[in-house]
């Protein structure tokens, strides 16, 4: 006897490889994307994996990946489908605005009549680390929201989760439908298999305009922060400790 099928939407963002060395574009308001590797954002990848595992365990169900983005986001949507998601929706924009509320409005408009039991997000995306869109989407939809979840289970129309706090955690329960934002700790995202990659080519990817509404937050300037002064090695082994303590006291004044 399996659990009832669960319909899950996973909202993903496409972000550059976090290990990149960034340059500023000539516009002065964005990073230069030339030469950067883009992929599903780390936390959104965990969210895709969490959704797939819930539906594999429960049997049946459906996992739909949704993204606001230009056409380049289709590659990320295809990748999520090659991992196992059933279909994808692109909410098309020329570029993703810095206004998280506008993005959430576009997602809520798409999701509100979708009949989803669970809507997953990454806890935040690498580029902004703002974590606005998931919680704002929940609020727009009037759904319960659990953020920074490192373990997630669904059974009999209820969810249970471990929510990470600052230096502590909570075990919580909540009714479905609900919005959950995913932290590390759920299983690592799987690599798409060759079979998965082939299957994803035939899965439906629907593209439609995003209903962003007014965009009221915009980037005025992007710049590289000042570099830290070059590091210095003050000595080797325990014999360097007195010099370190002296510097912490007299120069850094932190001791």
């Amino acid at each position: 006897m399996g659990a009832p099928a669960v319909k899950i939407a996973v909202c993903i963002k496409r972000t550059p490889d976090s290990e990149s060395r960034f340059r500023i574009a000539s516009s002065g308001v964005a990073i230069d994307e030339a030469g950067l590797k883009f992929d599903i954002d780390d936390f959104a990848g965990y969210a895709v994996e969490a959704a797939l595992q819930i539906n594999e365990k429960g049997g049946g169900g459906e996992t739909v990946v949704v993204a606001v983005g230009p056409d380049s986001v289709q590659e990320s949507l295809r990748k999520a489908m090659s991992m196992g998601a059933d279909r994808a929706v692109q909410l098309k924009v020329d570029s993703v605005p810095a206004d998280g509320l506008a993005v959430a409005k576009a997602l809520a408009a798409e999701l509100k009549d979708g009949g989803y039991d669970l809507i997953l997000f990454g806890k935040h995306a690498f580029d902004t680390s703002a974590g606005v869109v998931g919680t704002a989407t929940a609020e727009l939809l009037g759904l319960p929201c659990v953020t920074a979840v490192s373990q997630l289970d669904v059974a009999s129309g209820r969810g249970s989760a471990r929510r990470e706090l600052e230096g502590a955690a909570e075990l919580v329960e909540f009714p479905l439908p609900a919005v959950v934002t995913i932290d590390e700790g759920v299983a690592r995202p799987r690599y798409p298999s060759l079979k998965g990659i082939m299957a994803a080519k035939k899965k439906p990817l629907e593209s439609k305009p995003a209903q962003l509404g007014a965009v009221r937050v915009s980037v005025q300037k992007a710049e590289l922060p000042p570099e830290r002064p070059a590091g210095r090695i003050i000595g080797e082994g325990a014999s360097a400790v007195p010099e370190l303590v002296r510097l912490l006291q007299s120069e850094a004044k932190v001791l």
Partner: peptide, 22 residues
């Protein structure tokens, strides 16, 4: 903080106000 990350987006929606985080 954990609290502010949670409250900020909720307030942005309830007040229909733009939000900037961090």
């Amino acid at each position: 903080s954990t609290q502010g990350r949670d409250l900020g987006p909720r307030l942005a929606v309830k007040l229909d106000a733009p939000i900037a985080s961090d």
